[in-house]
Every structure is written in C-alpha cells, then in structure tokens.
Simulated assay, not measured.
Amino acid sequence: MSISWDKPNKCWRYQFDRRIQGSRHRASRLLPRGWTQAQADAFDRQESARLYAIATGVQRQDPLIDDAVSLYLADKRHLKSYKATADHLNQIAPFYAGKAMSTLADVAKEVIRDEGARGVSPATIRNRLACLKAACRWGWKAHALTEADPTARMQLPAVRNERHVYVKREGMLKTARAATRHDVRIAIRVAFYTGMRLGELQRVRVHGNVLELEDTKNGDRRAIPAHPRIHTCLRYLPLTAPKITLQRGWQRAREATNIGDVHFHDLRHSAASEMANAGVDLYTVGTVLGHRDPRSTQRYSHLTAAKLSDAIGAIGKRVGQKLPHKAAAKGKKKAAPRAA
C-alpha cells in the first residue's frame, strides 16, 4: 500500500517502491497535515501514475511544486514569518500537491476561484499565493529546478484594502491620556511621532536621540531621529510587555475616547499624513516609514494635492508671478476686513 499513517509526524506518508523495466524506482513524501485519507488516496493515484509514466519514458521528468515548497521551507527557517508562511502553503497544498511546476499558473487560477468561492478574503488568497510564488522562484533561482522563471505567467488577485484613517495630534493625546497603562501611553505617542509599528517598538534600540531598528519588516536597517516631543519617552524603549497586552490597552483607551474604528496601526498612517500635509515629499515619507516599494507610499499621494497644484501652476509662469491658488488665498485675506 502506497499510503500509510506516519505517527511521529501526525500525517499521511506516500511511498512509491516498484521495479519497472528492470530498474527499482522509489519515492517517499510526507503529505500535508490535516489531509484526510480520501485526499491522501487521491494523491496516491495521481502521483503513482506520474512516476510510472516517467519511469517508462512516457512522460518527461518535470519538477513538482512540492519540491520547490520543501526546499524553500528547509532553507528559510530563519525567517520571522516562517510559521505563517508554512501555514499559508499548507492551506493551499491540496491545489498544488503532485502538480508540476509548469502548471503553476493554472494552480493559481484554481486557488483564486475555489478559495474565493469558499469566502476566503482576496488579501488572504494573495498572501498564500505570494508564499507559493516565492517558493517556486526560490526553487528556480537557488536550486535550478527549472530553466526559466516558473512564476512568469502566475497571476495574483488584486487587493484594494488600504485604510485611510488618520488621527490628529489632539485625538492622539486624548487617547494616550485615557490609557490606563504607562507603556501604552508611551506606545501611542512614539508611534504617532515616528510611524513605527507596535512590533517595532518592542525591538527598537535607542542611541542618543535616534531610534534604530536592525531588523525591519523588509529586512533593511532603519534609523529615525526622535521628535523633540518624545525625548522623555525614549528611556522606556523598547517596550517589554506582550504585544497582546499593549493592543488590549489601546482598545480600552480607544473605547474610552469614542474615536471610532481606529486601529493602532493607523497611528503609523497618521504620522505619514502629518508629514505629507506639512509638504514633506513622498520619497522622504517612505524612507521614514521604511517602505522599500514606492507604491506603498502612494496611498498618501492625495494629501499632496496642493503641492502638485503648485507644480502645475509653475508651468509657463513669469518670474515673480504668484501661483493662482496662492493669489486667491491672499485676496480672500484682504477681503475679510471689508466684509466685517
């Protein structure tokens, strides 16, 4: 029997051991945890037929997506996101198990269609496929499983989930004062004045008046000068309380002030909003936030409309001539006393 229960690993194991045309052909593979026996038997039929076809020369050897996933997970155990990545890959394993790398684009379409029909959010589907894409690209680049990039035709679903919720300084201070924990008050103030994530506040190192992160979400080192208003908060960093404790402290403070559906992460967006409204260019805003991809900063582009208006108004302008919207604003200021 090709399928047996692997008690130590708590999952099914597939084994292929046959003598074909005078040669011994063996293969063994642990199947994803959570698979039922029916799923394991279906894999047995499909994989045994494939291996038999390869052994008899009917089918050319084509690397499996499973091979790329196994190599990726073996090589990337150091990643902070390793557990989440392994879980994402396991969730869609029934779609790619036993499938060749050349079928990756079709596998992605099946995931999008079937997972979407089950009610899985587009963002979650995209994250799962992004992990699969990274694994297959790693198999190509690091292990030469294929001659060309197998993800070239792979399509990921579009996701539009940017939040545009911003908190003004007054709202931030009101919420910080409502917090019952001192470290939560520190977290709120520092997040607003630096744009740092909650997890980053637990890893940050302070050198003088500079906040440094050696290991960020995108893997780059980041240094942020501390705003004068948070100099007194620096001695309490990094925060040592569990993340869930800080999050619950934020939720209680938010409910006490009735500021609405504002997430702690929205303080990061608020920092970007404050900088963009003050005329800071988006490249600099992205640098402060640690964005590697400029597209991540484009969500704040609508906040720089006045600056873009200045740029457009400068076209063909004579030296010394005022920009249209500034001249209009000046006229309104002069007209105000007459109306009073």
Rank of each mutant, 00 (worst) to 15 (best):
R318D: 11
A142F: 11
S2R: 06
N258Q: 14
T257F: 09
Q15V: 13
A55N: 05
E115N: 10
T216G: 01
V285I: 14
I224R: 01
T146R: 00
E170Q: 14
K174R: 15
R126P: 07
G331W: 10
A130I: 08
K332D: 13
T56V: 15
V165W: 04
P63N: 07
P225Q: 08
L73P: 07
K322E: 15
K141G: 00
R268T: 10
A241G: 01
R50Q: 06
L145S: 07
P225G: 01
N90A: 04
R197N: 00
Q251C: 03
T304N: 00
Q247M: 13
G219R: 07
D67L: 14
N277V: 10
L64N: 01
H182V: 14
S273P: 05
R222G: 00
H302M: 08
R33T: 13
R235S: 12
T245G: 03
V107H: 07
A179C: 09
R60G: 04
S4W: 11
W35K: 00
R153W: 12
Q91E: 01
D261N: 11
R292I: 02
A276C: 05
K332V: 14
K317F: 05
N258P: 01
R26E: 04
R160M: 08
K326G: 02
A40C: 02
Y300D: 04
H302L: 06
K80R: 15
Q91I: 13
L323I: 15
N161R: 03
K217A: 01
R160K: 13
R77V: 13
T240E: 13
R50F: 11
N9L: 07
H143G: 04
R295E: 12
R13W: 05
A117M: 03
